[in-house]
């Protein structure tokens, strides 16, 4: 199985853990992820204004490059996935924007949304299959009660993202169960963590994180997993802030659990100890 792979800036720096564990797991699963040459930053947020095309262009370059290889484009960072998937949708459905973008970029071939953008989790579910993944689990996470946190970017807006049932998703829970863990259901799993508001309004985000963490704890979670560097930062750093440094619920990227279940690496013991 071979795919084009778009990493994004955060994965090369603050969220290197996410990328390293994902790539390691992919290799173990026989999935070839070819990092795109000369990828550019997706812009981190999808441009919601419809009167300018400049913010789309870097995404379109990556999408067009993937089309040239004929492979599906795999993303890992939730924000990059959101931006690329939506940009692709616009290219597919909005003739006007599509024409302008093509005119501007002067690509050798016109790009009209032909690439399929899939998230790493979708890759595991739809391309590899959770049942195939289950067979590769060497160290099942039996007995571990883990809460999945979806965040916004993978799920919404539902009509475009088509990731899962936006109000009642199950992909991450199915993933956790595949690894042998017990998935904890709690009502805040699809709420917003506060995203970039933590740049300026940390107190608002702290309040939102507190609700999420408390809800997960009340439902018996021993750890929480996410798929987005910014969710990860908010859940981890602002949890510590509200609890005055005491981490009540460890936070992991879903790929860290994958790595552990495949027997590639133990989660750092010291991390558990916090």
């Amino acid at each position: 199985m071979r795919f084009s792979y778009y990493p994004g800036c955060t994965l090369k720096t603050t969220a290197a853990v996410l990328e390293n564990s994902a790539l390691k797991a992919a290799r173990a699963l026989g999935i070839e992820l070819l990092e795109q040459e000369e990828w550019q930053c997706c812009g981190a947020v999808f441009p919601l204004t419809v009167d300018e095309i400049a913010p789309f262009l870097s995404s379109v370059r990556s999408l067009a490059a993937a089309k040239d290889t004929g492979e599906k484009l795999v993303t890992l960072c939730a924000a990059c996935h959101h931006v690329l998937k939506r940009a692709n949708h616009v290219m597919k459905t909005d003739k006007d924007v599509c024409n302008k973008a093509n005119n501007y970029l002067q690509l050798p071939d016109q790009y009209r949304g032909g690439t399929e953008v899939i998230h790493y989790l979708e890759l595991l579910r739809d391309e590899l299959g959770f049942s195939a993944l289950a067979q590769k689990v060497k160290k099942p996470l039996t007995g571990q009660k883990i809460a999945a946190f979806y965040g916004c970017l993978l799920l919404r807006p539902p009509a475009v993202m088509q990731f899962d049932n936006a109000e009642n998703p199950s992909i991450m829970e199915d993933f956790l169960r595949t690894l042998g863990a017990t998935a904890v259901d709690y009502p805040y799993r699809t709420e917003c963590c506060g995203v970039y508001l933590s740049v300026q309004n940390e107190e608002i985000v702290a309040g939102m994180v507190e609700k999420i963490i408390n809800s997960a704890l009340r439902h018996g979670a021993e750890a929480i997993v996410d798929a987005c560097p910014l969710c990860h930062y908010n859940l981890l750093e602002l949890q510590q802030k509200t609890t005055h440094g005491k981490l009540t619920l460890p936070v992991y990227y879903f790929t860290e659990l994958l790595e552990e279940a495949l027997g590639l690496e133990d989660r750092a013991e010291e991390k558990m100890a916090i």
Binding site: N165, A166, E167, N168, D185, P187
Partner: peptide, 11 residues
């Protein structure tokens, strides 16, 4: 009501 998960119907 499958698409209206926010009301927790069925859950």
């Amino acid at each position: 009501l499958d698409d209206f998960g926010e009301f927790s119907y069925g859950k």
